[in-house]
Amino acid sequence: MRCDRRRAAALISFFLIASFVQSSENQVLVYKKKYIMGTIFEIAAYDQSSEHASNAIEKAFQEVVRLDNLLSNYKSDSALSNLNRSAHFHAEKVPSDLYRAIDQAVQFSRLSDGKFDISVAPLVNLWKAALRGEGTPSRAQQEEVRSCVGYEKIDLTPPDRISFRSSCLQLDLGAIGKGYAVDRAAEVLHSLGIRDALVNAGGSTIFAMGSPPDQTGWLVHLRDPSNKIDPQVMLKDGSVSTSEQTAPSLLGNDSAGHIIDPDTGMPLKTVFTVSAVSRTASASDALSTTLLLLGPTKGTALIESMADVSAIWISHEAHVETVTGGPQILFGRGL
């Protein structure tokens, strides 16, 4: 479906005086960043004590590192890699976070009729080679790999057992893992008394807790490939994620891309970038990919069946489709 590597997806802004200075309410803003999960995690948090905020952020980062060691399919010793090696026709006991992440992913697969599918990894890997210039995979190669794909071949047995009903099924949590980690990082911050913070996973998934002092929320500028619209959303205790297909080659005619359509087994062809706003980062992360794959018509129908979700599709030519079931998406510039 897609790898971890998504384009910088959002423009974020919020009004404040400066970092590390006292605000009018004696709230100190502390900002830290850390390279985890193949991207830069950033956390900005307000608290009366900079030391307390700093320690809380470090704890949140530690949680993301812990989750990366469970959910990564790049790390050969991760819990996910172990599962990918051993769960074929055999129920494996897995850590609770891995179980929850896969369970949530499968729910989105059902919701989207299989458009969102964490078992698409073999196809992603096949097309990654094409992205590197190693040639387009043959039809036979594609068909062979497609037989390995299908979320319905994943069996989840509560509370913690998973098995695959296929000999070649492989899972890749790239389309939901960062969102899951952002949610857990926010939980850590909250458990340590932080009420107002922004957690940003590489710009593609952002979770806003509370709001900056004297503000109603965190104003997040969304990705706008047309540079004509400047869409924005005021986030408070909510998340936004953005997905778009790999940019087309400037010097070639290939149609490779990192987001694969499970229906065709080929890279998705779309003119849109999608931002999805939801209550949790896991949901916004999974939804942004799903909505990109579904397109505006089917995507709108899906969102209308859900609570508290908004979304926007924007093309390079400033073709815009929005659906608002949650926070309102505003336009900084006129259409």
Binding site: S13, F14, K33, S204, H221
Partner: peptide, 18 residues
């Protein structure tokens, strides 16, 4: 991608992928 500016907005500017 969070760039903090004095007295102004905190804004992202990432011309390429993260």
């Amino acid at each position: 991608s969070l760039v903090i500016k004095r007295g102004s907005v905190l804004e992202v500017s990432s011309p390429t992928a993260q």
